[in-house]
């Protein structure tokens, strides 16, 4: 039975006001900029959809979007299975549980710009622990300010280090909610370890993994601070992800119109991909 109580809306009202002020109104100003041109002095001229056409045809945008998609796809392909594997190998009871959980939570507690700075220092060829070890001890030429490959490897390793924990914690929460009877029944049914994973653990983790994939997609697609602090988008443009490029256009060149159009396209892509992920992963549920 459902009862409708219009007074319920009163309770939602403060949130609506808050969301309006911190999201909707700024978004509308972006929409406003995206269809106008300005040469300073707070003078604006109608530009129609010109910026959108320009952005969508821009090779620079295509390249940044390509790098962004490659980055997000790579970290998802690494972090989701790795997170599941770590969660599976964590103890389910005993004194090591809190130890493991705290260790896992640590990277998540570090502010994003600190993560970037940490890894920046960590990888410095002369004084950084990793940079020094690779260059001077192992003799591998590694310098992410010169080599795009090294920069990419570092950015991805940093993200894996920073965010795999989130997947681990979510997957672990899914795992410990499985009643022991499932494992006992599987034993009696003669199921192999792989079958237990495939038919019990994975289906029971399905929901939390959906959330993990969505969160990791959105966060990595919008990532800015860490790679900006770490590489500043370089060397060259090799690690200039969408958000970094956007800030360059908006604040570096002060092209408000194209930057606004780019923001909206960026937003639309993030929204569309999130929706596709969600629809695909929940299509089997009622």
């Amino acid at each position: 039975m459902r009862t409708h109580n219009p007074r319920g809306w009163l309770f939602v009202l403060p949130v609506l006001v808050l969301v309006a002020f911190n999201a909707l109104i700024p978004l509308m100003t972006v929409v406003n900029y995206s269809v106008q041109e300005t040469f300073g002095n707070n003078q604006f001229f109608w530009a129609g959809l010109r910026w959108f056409e320009e952005i969508l045809r821009s090779e620079r945008f295509h390249a940044a979007l390509g790098r962004q998609l490659l980055f997000t796809a790579t970290i998802l392909v690494i972090e989701i299975p790795l997170g599941v594997i770590i969660a599976l190998s964590m103890p389910r009871h005993g004194i090591w549980v809190p130890v493991c959980l705290v260790l896992m939570a640590l990277p998540l507690l570090i502010p994003w710009n600190v993560v970037g700075a940490m890894w920046n220092i960590f990888t410095l060829p002369k004084i950084g622990l990793l940079g020094y070890t690779l260059n001077s001890v192992l003799g591998i030429d590694y310098n992410m300010t010169q080599s795009p490959t090294a920069a990419w490897v570092t950015v991805i390793t940093m993200d894996v280090w920073h965010w795999t924990s989130l997947v681990v914690l979510l997957a672990y929460a899914g795992l410990i909610s499985i009643p022991p009877a499932y494992y006992q029944a599987a034993k009696i049914d003669g199921a192999s370890n792989w079958s237990v994973f495939r038919y019990i653990q994975l289906p029971k983790m399905n929901r939390v993994l959906t959330i993990a994939v969505l969160l990791r997609f959105m966060d990595s697609f919008n990532i800015y601070t860490e790679p900006f602090v770490l590489t500043g988008g370089g060397p060259g443009n090799s690690t200039t992800l969408l958000s970094i490029d956007l800030v360059k256009v908006a604040l570096g060149q002060f092209d408000l119109g194209p930057a606004a159009a780019m923001s909206l396209i960026y937003f639309a892509i993030a929204l569309a991909v999130s929706w596709i992920f969600y629809a695909l992963m929940t299509r089997d549920r009622q």
């Binding site: 009643p179 009877a181 499932y182 029944a185 009696i188 038919y199 019990i200 289906p203 029971k204 089997d284």
Partner: peptide, 21 residues
Amino acid sequence: LPPDKRNIAQVFQFPVIYDTM
């Protein structure tokens, strides 16, 4: 002997089914 070597079957308090099958 472990359960799978004993040829026994057990039905638990709560139904145990493989959801995806």
